[in-house]
């Protein structure tokens, strides 16, 4: 007998008191909690997202398609970046006006090389208003997980209101668990020193979120 069989055997013996017809999972779990907290218009939900992002020290900008390239250019210049990482299918127009050299994410790009790039620009999959969270799912406008991790300055573009949901339950409905997912709520932080939140450990220390009107 191997360890797998031994552990499963122990589990079954431990559960000898559980009757064979114990009720289904659906019956066992009440789902009477809220799908979202409070009633809001789409616009109010977007406002809440902006508020909660800022509350956790993300820097929030709002713009439209026409101004987006100029805004990105200004943000990169303000950060003093000479290079920026871009995922394979970031809309070309977004960075059309930007001076920094585009470093395209490719399999050959080593972590050490990425570490020398100051900024990264990505899209996102979903943004959650109630928690101020961005979710990236590795789609071609977001790229591999590492590109939004190693550079110290992350610019993330959220299409509003189409990519915004109110709550965590609504976000999970939109996401595909087979994609690698990264949930981001503000810049890298720690509470490890005296249980006080301090921004800036291993992930990007500056997170700028651009809410782009659809």
């Amino acid at each position: 007998m191997n360890s797998r069989d031994r552990i499963l055997g122990r589990v079954r013996r431990a559960l000898a008191d559980v009757p064979p017809h114990d009720g289904s999972y659906e019956e066992a779990v009440p789902r009477n909690y809220l799908r979202e907290h409070g009633k809001r218009t789409l616009q109010e939900t977007v406002d809440l997202l902006a508020e909660n992002l800022a509350d956790y020290r993300a820097i929030v900008h709002r713009t439209d398609t026409a101004d987006l390239p100029h805004l990105i250019t200004r943000l990169l210049a303000a950060h003093g970046s000479t290079e920026m990482l871009v995922p394979p299918e970031l809309p070309a127009s977004w960075t059309a006006a930007a001076d920094p050299v585009r470093i395209h994410d490719r399999a050959e790009l080593t972590p050490e090389r990425m570490d020398r790039v100051a900024s990264v620009v990505t899209g996102c999959a979903v943004a959650i208003a109630e928690t101020g969270t961005l979710v990236l799912d590795g789609s071609p406008d977001q790229g591999r997980r590492r590109i939004s991790l190693i550079p110290d300055h992350h610019i993330c573009v959220v299409r509003v209101p189409s990519q915004v949901v109110a709550s965590v339950p609504q976000a999970l409905e939109r996401l595909d668990p087979t994609s690698p997912l990264t949930w981001i709520s503000g810049p890298s932080a720690t509470s490890d020193i005296e249980l006080n939140r301090v921004e800036g450990v291993h992930g990007p220390r500056t997170l700028e979120v651009i809410l782009l009107d659809d």
Partner: peptide, 17 residues
Amino acid sequence: ERMNPYTSMWTGTSDED
């Protein structure tokens, strides 16, 4: 916190990533 700064979810392995 309303949400912790980072949550990672992965299912097996993914090509390249």
